[in-house]
Design a protein around this nucleic acid. Sequence first.
RNA 1: GGCGCCAUGGUGCAACGGCUAGCACAUCACCCUUUCAAGGUGGAAAUGCGGGUUCGAUUCCCGCUGGCGCUACCA
Length: 496
Amino acid sequence: MSSATKPRVRFAPSPTGYLHVGGARTALFNWLYARRECGTFILRVEDTDVERNRPELVDGILASLRWLGLQWDEGPIFQSQRMELYSAAARRVLDAGHAYWCFCAPSSYAGADAAPQEEPDDGAATPATAAPAKPARKSACGCRNLSAGQQAAERAAGKSPAIRFAVPRTGTTRFDDAVFGPREVANEELEDFVLLRSTSVPTYQLGAVVDDIDMRITHVIRGADHLSNTPKQVLLYRALGTEPPAFAHVPLILGPDRSRMSKRHGATSVASYEEEGFLPEAFRNFLALLGWAPGGDVELLSTGEMIEKFSLPGVSRTNAVFDRGKLEWFNQQYLQKLPLDELLPPVERVLRRAGIWRDEWATGAGREWLARTVDLIRPRTRLLPDFAGWARAFFSDEFGYDDAARAKFWKEPRLAEWFPKLADGYAAQPEWNHDACDKTLRDLAAAENVKAGVLINATRVAILGVAVAPPLFDSMVALGRDRVVRRLRAALSHLG
RNA sequence: GGCGCCAUGGUGCAACGGCUAGCACAUCACCCUUUCAAGGUGGAAAUGCGGGUUCGAUUCCCGCUGGCGCUACCA
């Protein structure tokens, strides 16, 4: 494949909020496609909406993209820095006769037949003659047929016009969508959309098309919410003298109630999932399977497998519901299977944040101890913060005793005499390993005529503060003799 | 309202006319087990409704219903 035919795709977020899960998945699919086809992944920031635009949010979006491992090859390119490009393009469309100056105020545009919400009620300022009792076209606006003189008059009256695309009144517009198949719409269904606002700021339609042409985008992979707008853009491409690129619209991600995912469904930004302690690999794997399946029954996919198997036709047309439970399962799987040296850095960050990190764990024997301990703990973790949560006692001497655990395993009153004896036994134990610790405890249990389990469970709470933890004697080895002995004695004052 | 898209268990995906509709999450039970997880085994659970086409429909067509999207000088 020559470089001229290698695909160029782009992800084009607008900085009106954080990177949300839907956008992240769109970015992921673009990235996967680019990697799969050895193409180029471009990042473009669509920040033309001066009203809602929040420049300070850009960094957060880029950070989330990097966190997910979606590195872009070109950009970020900011639309706000190339405004001349858009107005020039609008002029060209105008000169070619495919657009016209519209002097209607946004609110009174004759074609605005149905604003998103309510319905105005006024004597419509439509063309002269009586309404033909026919189509009541959305694109009908008197401005389309204004003479030069009339335009001059409007300008003289102080009105600043917008440039509106003149959608053909007849015919159909068609295009192929890689996931939705061939599409065809009657032009009469399309309204004369604005290209350039009266403020000279381009609309999304203009900006996106002009940039996609300028950046030589070959495949537009974006949310299905743009499917209905695509015919307009196809028309615009042609008016600009270019054939449109390939399109691929991916289904939307919905909340549990099947409505569009929003804040009221809980966390929607990828930053919040990073914050909560999800691993980027797990989050990405989960996202990839929302609206796409590699075929077969595989779910856990490495980056390489994901890239190798990704295909646009394999993308579903059905909207997907974001299932947090499954996300957590993915995270648990990755927590379990990630190579230890890849897991250690994020664990270190969690421990640092909790204020219990110790530098001796950075290298040498300390590092080895950390690795073994993390490996011991991880089968019972679901999120990264668990390491500083229930497993805190492995890393810090400052931990509390879980009330439920005490209630369940510290019922036996004779523990008050057994803990000291056990502590003495461990202090005197010649070797410090799993079997020795096991034997010491069982010997005491036999001598005191109590089931070993009672002592084991009580001891776990004494040295770790929790009931849910790794096997006791492995935990003891990880903690070391001093801590075990000390905690056994300290627990005495916390018994009923 | 208009136009469009979508429709398999609670959820995510398989089955792209042809075995008893499969896998995973969640759920229930059991096994394992010193706790709790993990893991293993098994159970319950779906083709929205109605018409067609066909020897045969989850699959193709139509209608309905439902959900979603677009219908902005938002993206």
